[in-house]
Design a protein around this nucleic acid. Sequence first.
DNA 1: GAGTGGTCTAGACCACTTT
DNA 2: AAGTGGTCTAGACCACTCA
Lengths: 236, 236
Amino acid sequence: MTAKTPVFQRIKGDILARIQTGDLRPGDLIPGEEALAEEFGCSRMTVHRALRELSQDGVVERRRKSGTRVARPGGRNVLLEIPRVDQEVAAMGCAYGYELLQREVGAPPEHVRSKLEAGAKTRAVHLCCLHRANGAPYQFEERWINLDTVPEAAEVDFAETGPNAWLLENVPWSDGEHVLSAANADARTAALLDIAEQDAVLTIERRTWRQDKVVTYARFTHPGRFYRLRTSLDRG
Amino acid sequence: MTAKTPVFQRIKGDILARIQTGDLRPGDLIPGEEALAEEFGCSRMTVHRALRELSQDGVVERRRKSGTRVARPGGRNVLLEIPRVDQEVAAMGCAYGYELLQREVGAPPEHVRSKLEAGAKTRAVHLCCLHRANGAPYQFEERWINLDTVPEAAEVDFAETGPNAWLLENVPWSDGEHVLSAANADARTAALLDIAEQDAVLTIERRTWRQDKVVTYARFTHPGRFYRLRTSLDRG
DNA sequence: GAGTGGTCTAGACCACTTT
DNA sequence: AAGTGGTCTAGACCACTCA
């Protein structure tokens, strides 16, 4: 069935194979687009697309006049999929439960205000939510939503719908920043997640922007014993 | 200077802006390639490239005959950069130190053998390494290298060069899988990292493949208090 | 100045999916 | 059967960068 795979994909695969077998090593020069076009019996555009995608994947580095070289892998860039809680729980075959523990509107504390890149007069919605799997605590979410950026959020009670789902519906496709870290559970978190105090938890902090303004700052906390984040393959 | 930005980029930016302002909402239909080509005064190929890249970024979904629609963001896909330890330490302005604690060659234990997808007779190099920043323990690395896949590794002593650097030089650009989790430090790890027992640690497990065969399985352990992994922006 | 990649075109044909 | 995206071409011109 190789006859049906697009030419640019065969070129990508061919070059990748040459690299993985050690035939081409980091720093090695790859023939020019015109030469490859002749070698593969296709147009330069097709070769260009193959090399461009390899370059975007970090496999190859391209410079005008110098040519294309196999990249020296430094760090690993991996694609991390952070699923939606409800979908994640459902994917495990568990019943998903949502509970709003706290909701208040007002000026956020100082350390949150800086995360929101907000002024002194900025108000925010502060939410504490618990997500459950088959009744058992699964994730604790603490979130602030910047009312300067999303004033509509002040009118939503979030009693039934989690803030994540609401934001995805109403403020889609913002840019984001995530920070992952491990910590020991404090007394409050331990009680909420039904784990022992000092147990390791994995926390994900997320900030999202819309048009250069911070939309929301959220902290997701999972029991470390049961929570693992997998990355799908990307680059090397 | 918008005159110098490529046309396909302007198209991407334009459509992204329409989405971020809420002009286009998830599920909305985007005009066909031919219509957009006329709207932007360019060829269909140029429009196609813009839409293809948006599709690869997960911003839109394309189906033949149906057309192109704004994607419903589900989970977040973020680009996670896992840097090389030495570069990471150097980037913090610290002196990097490497110490090989243990090196042995033999049959790996059962739970590792399954990770290596190895047979009963497979031998592996087992390494325990400590990475330091300004003399202080920074990362503990435990690793097995599959000698079926990389027999050369049996001859390397890894006393001076860390296994990561060696593998990147000798087995470049393999595919990878990563698992992130939080855990409480056991006595041995705590002693090595100079932290208290039960302190939270962030662990990264990595497996890499070359040509469908597992090259190596590694566990990297960091003090959770000081270690954070940041994701750069990608998709929503 | 010369050589490389980067973009773009106008048109063609194909592949998939819905009607 | 028709309409959409997916690929490919042959050629063009431009932009960067090295000698």
